[in-house]
Design a protein around this nucleic acid. Structure first.
Lengths: 128, 128
DNA sequence: CCGCGAATTGACTTTTACGTAAATCAGGTG
DNA sequence: CACCTGATTTACGTAAAAGTCAATTCGCGG
């Protein structure tokens, strides 16, 4: 496990631009340390980026991603806050479950569409 | 099964605005029929809207949704086109499978976060 | 036949998530 | 030191996906 990654290392690894990483920092999603003015990303920062990009691929907005990230952080000490956090987690879970339903439905429709194609090919006398 | 829905019926059913429906029409995603200048949505249009919104929730862009919708249509007659379509379907499936991985990973992280909360509550002597 | 609310059209605005360009700076190398 | 490469900052630009507003215009209920 390396101690630090440079910004360009991460851009290459994740296929994103430096602008994007700085943007996420401006948005308070990541907080790389500095050596001089240069950003250094720790493994934990790198992991955060991975989580951010997962959220992005799932169609979450920056604000939604921010909320999801916040629940990953070490839980607060106060009981009330902990209950709030658990509630928030359940919310996000519902959201993801909806997406999962959407996903499965779409996959099924794709299956049906492919079947139709295969049938049509069969009609045309093409061996699959 | 009703024959036609008005635009406001659909906005209420799906919780979207008329502007959104008109936008999807401008983008060529749906083609409601007209009585005079008034739009009338058939059940098939309604189903298309449902599919569009599923795509939207999954973070697909309008263009991506357009592509997905196109594969649902009755398959073309030419063999070459059919093979192209099948290829396209496989592409979309890959995309959805990636999203599914992202989704499951995120759900797992949420589980871990919740566990941490519950543990923390236990430490504080709160019964769950 | 007339009025009024629902629908349409078109133009402009907004928000999000970055892209892009220009100027500056830091640091390692010959 | 002069140079070059990479990083940073600042500021403006922009594409996508609608929202909003104003000006019509149907169409049907009385």
């Amino acid at each position: 496990m390396r101690e630090y990654y440079t910004i360009t290392e991460l851009t290459r690894e994740f296929g994103i631009s430096t602008r994007t990483l700085r943007f996420y920092e401006d948005e308070g999603l990541i907080h790389p340390v500095r050596r001089g003015r240069t950003r250094l990303y720790r493994p934990s920062d790198r992991h955060l980026v991975r989580q951010i990009l997962r959220g992005r691929r799932l169609g979450f907005s920056i604000n939604e991603i921010r909320e999801i990230i916040q629940v990953y952080k070490t839980p607060p000490g106060e009981v009330a806050q902990l209950h709030l956090l658990i509630q928030k987690i359940e919310e996000k879970r519902q959201d993801l479950r909806q997406k999962r339903r959407d996903l499965e439905d779409t996959l099924q429709e794709l299956d049906r569409a492919e079947e139709a194609c295969v049938e049509r090919l069969a009609e045309l006398g093409v061996k699959t």
